[in-house]
Amino acid sequence: MKKILIIEDNQKIREELSVFLSQNGYFCEAPAGFGNVIESILADPPQLVLLDINLPVCDGYHICREVRKQSSVPIIVVTSRDTELDELIAMNLGADDFVTKPYNTQILLARIAAVLKRAFPDSANDRLICDGFSVSLSKSTLDHAGRSIELTKNELKILSCLYERRGAIVSRNELMRYLWDSELFVDDNTLTVNMTRLRHKLEDAGLYQVIGTRRGQGYLLQ
């Protein structure tokens, strides 16, 4: 499990962010003191640092600069200052990404995942193991009984979204938000078409009733 260090002076945000990231499969550490942040990052480096800029003792830019002198640990700067200049300063000091408050949590998760993927390319969890079949994320294929079926980007995303929340109902809107990619904007019809195609592919592979429908509520991976 990846360890994320949250450097944030607001207690509520610190706690809620820890809970939120823990729910999404990360191990979080959120120190309440800011006296020796730099030393603790260097002594026990996490896989990623979420760094606020306005901090007591010394500001985030300083921490960023000092840490960068000795370590290449991925740093995402999180701040309520949102001008281009702030972003530029953060990037120049060696931050890997820049997210402004109040962040959209989905975007924050996506940025964390992207930065981690860049920093640790091999360790990414590549395979979703489901009941009776598995999915390869890097090859975008569905493997079942020795056969391999190609999946499109959207089909892969639908499966991974349902997989992340397996056993629970995922509403159509939630699925659409998950699919809503930077260059592909999904509407209701697109989702229906993709879902139908995915089910056909699963049935072709001999997998029936894998994705259940709850009328008026959404879908569910058994």
Partner: peptide
């Protein structure tokens, strides 16, 4: 003020999301 109010908004949003 805007930067200050963003912190409690962010906190509330996170709480609600959790």
């Amino acid at each position: 003020w805007v930067h200050e109010i963003k912190t409690p908004i962010a906190a509330s949003k996170l709480t609600a999301q959790n």
